[in-house]
Simulated scan of single mutants.
Amino acid sequence: MENPEDPKRCPWCGADPLYVAYHDSEWGRPERDPQRLFELLILEGFQAGLSWITILRKRDSFRAAFAGFRPETLATWGEAEIARLLADRGIVRHRGKIAGTLRGARAFLRIEAREGFSPFLWSFTGGVTLDACPARMSDIPASTPQSAAMSRALKAEGFAFVGPTITYAFMQAAGMVNDHLADCPARISRKTPRAI
């Protein structure tokens, strides 16, 4: 996996070292930590209309600007913090996405207190990683019934920018689905979960 131009690696990461490292060490690995899942969900929402590499390059700035994505902190923020974030060149400056993050933090706290944020999200896959073992990029859907159900539930809780395509990208990144291509070294290096 040292060669960033390995033709077997999922082609979406290209040869950019940051993207390759993300693909090899993060993307598709099952994540259960609730705060990490919250951060990933929020960043997927910020990605809407942009490329993921744009978000990845700004991720450290996002973490600094959004207090490490600590929901208990973000839930207390209001217009003053939104104005500050809109002036921060290190992040994607979109009022709707910023305000949606603060609403999402409040929703996170409600869900976490009620049933746990991680169990809530993983319930859409039955608590396991779903796997279709795609042979080609064209085998990977843009959304699934599970991502559509997650999208509806998140919207009902108060989250924004969580359409079915965004939630499917989130599920891929968080390892709820394994969409590494069949011959990708990142897939081969870990146990294959149950099939969809």
Rank of each mutant, 00 (worst) to 15 (best):
Leu41Thr: 12
Thr165Tyr: 05
Pro185Gln: 09
Leu18Lys: 10
Ala15Phe: 01
Pro145Gln: 11
Glu31Pro: 00
Gly127Cys: 05
Asp88Val: 04
Thr165Val: 15
Gly126Ser: 09
Lys191Cys: 00
Arg29Met: 13
Phe46Tyr: 13
Phe66Gly: 02
Glu112Ala: 06
Cys13Met: 10
Asp183Asn: 14
Phe161Trp: 07
Asn3Gly: 12
Phe159Leu: 01
Glu26Thr: 14
Gly158Asp: 13
Trp77His: 13
Met176Gln: 12
Glu5Leu: 12
Lys97Thr: 02
Glu157Met: 07
Tyr168Thr: 11
Ile166Glu: 00
Phe120Gln: 07
Tyr168Gly: 04
Glu81Gly: 04
Phe117Thr: 03
Asp16Ser: 03
Arg57Asn: 11
Thr125Pro: 08
Pro164Ala: 14
Lys191Gly: 13
Ile111Gly: 06
Leu18Trp: 00
Pro7Ser: 09
Arg63Thr: 07
Met171Lys: 06
Ala149Trp: 01
Arg70Ile: 01
Met150Glu: 06
Thr73Gly: 07
Ala48Met: 00
Phe161Cys: 02
Thr54Trp: 05
Phe38Pro: 03
Gly175Pro: 08
Tyr168Val: 09
Ala105Thr: 01
Trp52Ser: 06
Ala107Phe: 03
Phe46Lys: 08
Cys10Ser: 14
Met176Ala: 11
Ala174Pro: 08
Gln47Thr: 10
Ile166Cys: 10
Asp6Phe: 10
Trp27Pro: 11
Phe62Tyr: 15
Ile196Lys: 11
Arg63Gln: 04
Phe66Ala: 01
Glu157Gln: 15
Leu43Glu: 11
Leu41Val: 12
